[in-house]
Design a protein around this nucleic acid. Structure first.
Lengths: 371, 371
DNA sequence: CGGATAGTGTGCAACGTTGTAGAGCCCGAC
DNA sequence: GTCGGGCTCTACAACGTTGCACACTATCCG
């Protein structure tokens, strides 16, 4: 049925192997031969059979990106960025949705589909440090996020504590004294919630503000709805608030909704800042200030690390790296940072960096518990 | 290196083919043999090599979903739904981003990657009816959207005209008389913009309202920014408006932003409705009314059609079908449809259906030009 | 002028799986 | 007792490609 190299070879009057050589850019081929083969390919509409090539080369040219859900804008934008970065490097991305369930996250690491691709870029949301063992795999793995530190794998993460602290200090610098936090996970000692909460507390301390537990709003899932509920709860309880730091933008947009419902003016009465800097942030009413954790850089770095790892398959124990992109506090209307006509303003920058991790260690900083 | 069937066979003391049979659920195997093979598989941690299987069976178990961009929430949610539906049916989805460029859309139809997957679910945004020839392909193809009618392929589309008309009539039923439209594509006779504009005009006509060209706001790309710009332009021009129908939710959210910037109250002064019913709509301020075009049903149907086509490969010319899911007008705060405490209300339903397309025809209705 | 080297092309044997065909065996029916 | 058929398992030959080794020519160097 389909056209194979054999057909092309026949038509061009060369061997199959020569066709293969042409297709793969082998240099030692006479221009005229190459020409003949290429014409034959065009005439016949030949395409290489990827399955056969993959079988022979033990490579698929695919990498898996495992995220909780594409309908969460942060992950949709991350996926977009990863796909584009992979594309530029000549790779194809296969997306796996885990719904943040332990079962599906475990399956991603070792399940049936694992073998379809050459490597895995994984943003876990259910698995945590107790599951470190699961992350010891013998294929190229790049971990995203802040739930798992110290696995024997490359890791791209965020400047969580520093950025959250900067966001909190920024609210304080606006003269706000009652800074609420939305999205806390009580008792959790790991993950974005814990790290950003740490940064929040450090920020309060540095600004000389007291820590009032009434200002901590829980929200298990970081959706708009839960953000709205947490904010409403706090307002209904009569907690006095003049600023809100939401641990991600979805929560922030939900909180904004609740503030509006309570007829509270943002930013005059309450200043609001989110985290992630998703596209939505720019267009909410008012436009949302946020922390840009360096998403594009995260995506590009993850792909680079992955491609490098795949290329070095065999040189077993190249040292693992942890990369943290620069993050920035983006001021918009919801913190009153922008002058009329201005879209946004970079209020602060937290520098990242690359760290070589000799083996499985916790990083100095991000492992701090929330106390 | 990797464990193969051969290793498993050896350990279990059976032939390779028996291992294959066990793995593939062939029924005529003694329980004890099966048991032995399964233990061997577990002991050795064997996984089938997909490349080899794919080569042999001429199937990859993958389908491509080609969309413009994942960072557009509508497509992110569509991708989520398609991936989930495919998952349930045992298939894996590979996402291709076209950036709505002609070049990339053409490449999706016939490019290098084409051969990685068994079929293509394609939502074109750049190619149109003039490119019908490109859509004549000999692999399973399901087309999404409203730019290409009459291609020899299954097609899942929306109730565009009917739904847009219903949305317009709904605004009219609220007593609005100056209903603006945001997102028009001047001169275009095909695609969502044209169809929804047709519905808008039909709605105006049925409500007995005059058609005022000043109320038509152009927006080439349907992003929040362009929606905001189109709305601002109209307001700055002093056009009198008491309702807005935005051709998608991104435009609507942008328009909402502009209305707010002009200190216009929604819905009291201007009622607003969007199209797509993306997740955002529920959480904007005020919550956005929208047209739900039946996204989940679209995704499920697309996957069903695809799987069926792939299964029937060979029976060449099974008739092509066009499927239109039911759509619904969802009333929320931005049209003042919800009572206090109520989240949303289904205001109207437009019934869809399935149509068998014997060959390449235009549908009776959706091909109407915008006049 | 001999031997090394660069350039150009080919044949063979995998890669790991499954489709096809069929070999035994046991059982019940005639 | 033999024949048909269901059950259980196996051998063999692909699927379409690329790695490896090698053959042959032309050129270059000393």
């Amino acid at each position: 049925m389909a056209v194979t190299m054999h057909d092309v070879a026949q038509r061009a009057g060369v061997s199959i192997k020569t066709v293969s050589n042409v297709v793969n850019g082998y240099p030692y081929i006479r221009a005229e031969t190459r020409q003949r083969v290429e014409s034959a390919i065009d005439d016949l509409g030949y395409r290489v059979n990827m399955s056969a090539r993959n079988l022979r080369t033990r490579r698929t040219g695919l990498i898996t990106l495992a995220v909780p859900e594409l309908s969460l804008p942060y992950f949709a934008e991350l996926a977009d960025a990863v796909i584009s970065a992979a594309d530029d490097a000549g790779w194809t991305v296969l997306i796996e949705q885990t719904s943040a369930s332990r079962e599906r996250e475990t399956e991603v690491l070792s399940g049936r589909r694992r073998h379809l691709t050459d490597g895995l870029i994984f943003s876990p949301l259910a698995l945590g440090p107790d599951d470190l063992g699961l992350f010891t795999v013998e294929y190229p793995l790049v971990i995203l996020g802040e739930r798992v530190f110290g696995a024997p794998a490359d890791h791209v993460t965020m400047n969580n504590v520093a950025a959250a602290k900067a966001a909190t200090l920024h609210l304080a610098s606006l003269g706000r004294r009652r800074i609420a936090l939305i999205g806390a996970h009580a008792g959790e000692q790991v993950g974005s919630a814990a790290l950003r909460t740490t940064g929040y507390l450090e920020g309060l301390a540095e600004a000389g503000l007291p820590h009032d537990p009434a200002l901590i709003g829980e929200a298990g899932l970081w959706h708009r709805s839960t953000g709205a509920e947490a904010m409403s709860r706090m307002l209904d309880d009569g907690v006095e608030v003049d600023a809100v730091f939401a641990l991600n933008d979805a929560l922030a947009l939900g909180a904004l909704h609740a503030l509006h419902a309570h007829r509270i003016d943002v930013p005059r009465e309450v200043a609001l800042i989110g985290f992630d800097d998703v596209d939505d942030a720019k267009y909410s009413v008012p436009a949302l200030s946020s922390v840009d954790p360096g998403r594009d850089q995260i995506a590009r770095t993850a792909v680079d690390l992955m491609v490098e790892r795949i290329g070095a398959a065999g040189d077993d124990q190249a040292p693992f790296r942890r990369v943290v992109p620069d993050s920035r506090i983006i001021g918009r209307e919801s913190t009153g940072d922008v002058a009329p006509g201005e879209r946004e303003r970079v209020v602060a920058v937290q520098e990242g960096g690359t760290e070589v991790v000799a083996s499985a260690w916790p990083p100095a900083r991000d492992r701090q518990n929330v106390t």
